[in-house]
Design a protein around this nucleic acid. Structure first.
Lengths: 310, 310
DNA sequence: CAAGGAGCCGCTCATATGAGCGCGAGCGCG
DNA sequence: CGCGCTCGCGCTCATATGAGCGGCTCCTTG
């Protein structure tokens, strides 16, 4: 293309794309037909004279995110790009993304349900602002570590400024009777009554094969593992266990202190946060279950999900 | 902006700007109203999420070029960016730009008129392709150097493949009688007859104050300088002399071998090529004269022209 | 020279789009 | 509680735009 046409076309492109003039206005200005202007702009695009770029944040793979959303019918999906594959790193980045997502979507009237886990602990650590909302713990304490649910609830509700409903009791207990008794404890009863009011929940996904789950560990200690693995448990969402196809199988309901599967399903938006190589199958199973509405995961896992189900 | 909205908006922006979908198509695809899509795209632009850039060649200032064109009512204008201000460098770059311009706009039927000068010599040196056209020398030889008009004509016509009409005679001679006699010489007569057929001409602009012109030097040797300077000559185009206001003053017509002012005016497109600090006033005067239809100059000179006449 | 084809132009008419408006939800305040 | 405010939404209607067409010129080719 010669320099004269270059000057003309660039000028037209600038008037249109930068100054926002319509093609008709440019045509009048230059005394040519609007069709001429349209063709000049087509040329400019085609010859690479006008470059349109979509600025993406380094940390998100926008394309994968949208494909996840579309493929699994999710309300939202975030495929987080991680600069490495160590569990710590992935959890930190997923936590950050989940924190940003919470800041974005939680509004003043919301009742926020949370579970525990290392990724959710990371999320709490990255959370900076949150609308005023009630924060409800959805399951008892699975691990006697700083990563337990009570700690997450405490941090998040402090940032939100809303009131918190914790569960000061284990996730899994020895007998159904103990579980029933605990559920009648005033503080715990209060929290359980809020489950039906929860509008948004952030939950971890535990993997049972390969094992990467605190509930799995607890079940092992409680001697329930063989029975549940025989039932084909692949993943857990709170205390709900699902197999590879997403069907709810086995049950720890009687001996656990947690939101029920039905209550979980009634929550308008359940956001699962999970990533890392070991969780691929569990995330796939959780998505199949229909319990999960939104997903925050790492880009590598997202890619594996889309490949296997293409 | 939160990550979820980021993903949505980026996706919409890509579908629209990259994939070329209409807003209505995207709206249908996502199940939202077209107004929503329009507002998302407005947001994307406003938040800097979509960047539209006009790629400009390093060597041309597109904005200055368009402003020159508009300000002086030119058919074409090129403001060439030079990486320095030495005369040699400026001439080289202007020559290159003029060569590119010629390659672009000369078509097979054209009759191309040329004068001489260092910049036009540079132009000839940079010329790589040219449509088949007749090449006509518009003025006699002003300097006994490799930069004379005959040499330029020879080079250009060789690249074009068309026939050439040179003037093997001086630009300025001692007496009107000698000039008349030369004009009757068969070869020269032939060239002069082609002047009325010239469709495009590339001419240099000579400056008389400060002096930067081969014709000025010749006039000095011929003892005509005082008279012409007294007449207020500021610039020369071929052998036509104009004052600061662009009015034709003085005359070397009787003693020169060159296209006449009237013939020059009748040429459909006269392209002046001139630049450098010393030529500012001369270029301004030449533009005033109405003889010049298009201009190739350096960006610095263009800027000075626009400043003084703003 | 006639026929045919390529390239450029501007038209028609259906479609896409933008400006501006009114509605209804959520929110703060007396 | 009732009021007004703001905001996000989608509507109407005038305008901008694109697809496709036919006319024109120029050039090639038989």
């Amino acid at each position: 293309m010669g320099p004269d046409e270059l000057v003309r076309i660039s000028h037209v492109a600038r008037r249109h794309y930068v100054d926002g003039l319509t093609k008709i206005e440019i045509a009048d200005e230059l005394g040519v037909s609007r069709f001429k202007i349209a063709r000049m702009l087509e040329d400019a695009l085609e010859k690479g004279l006008v470059k349109i770029t979509i600025e993406a944040p380094d940390s998100l793979d926008l394309d994968l995110s949208m494909r996840l959303r579309a493929r699994f019918g999710l309300t939202r999906a975030l495929a987080v790009i991680t600069p490495g594959t160590t569990p710590d790193l992935i959890q930190d980045r997923l936590g950050r993304a989940a924190a940003d997502l919470l800041s974005e979507i939680v509004t003043d009237g919301d009742v926020l349900g949370l579970t525990a886990g290392r990724t959710l602990t990371a999320m709490a650590g990255h959370l900076r602002t949150l609308a005023t909302c009630e924060v409800v713990q959805l399951a008892g304490v699975a691990a006697p570590t700083p990563e337990n649910g009570v700690e997450v609830i405490r941090q998040v509700s402090r940032i939100s400024g809303g009131r918190s409903r914790a569960i000061f009791a284990p996730l899994l207990v020895e007998s159904p009777a103990t579980a029933s008794a605990l559920r009648r404890e005033p503080g715990i009863l209060e929290t359980f009554r809020r489950f039906d009011s929860v509008t948004k929940a952030v939950v971890a996904i535990g993997s049972w094969s390969p094992p990467d789950s605190q509930l799995y560990d607890n079940a092992g200690r409680a001697g329930m593992l063989d029975e549940l693995l025989a039932a084909g448990v692949k993943a857990e969402i709170c205390a709900t266990l699902v197999n590879e196809s997403g069907a709810v199988v086995g049950s720890v309901a009687e001996r656990s202190l947690a939101v029920s599967t039905e209550q979980l399903r009634r929550i308008p938006e359940v956001i699962a946060v999970a990533g890392g190589p070991s969780k691929t199958g569990a995330v796939a199973a959780a998505l199949q279950s229909g319990i999960v509405d939104s997903l925050v995961t790492d880009a590598a896992l997202a890619r594996r999900l889309l490949e296997t189900s293409a």
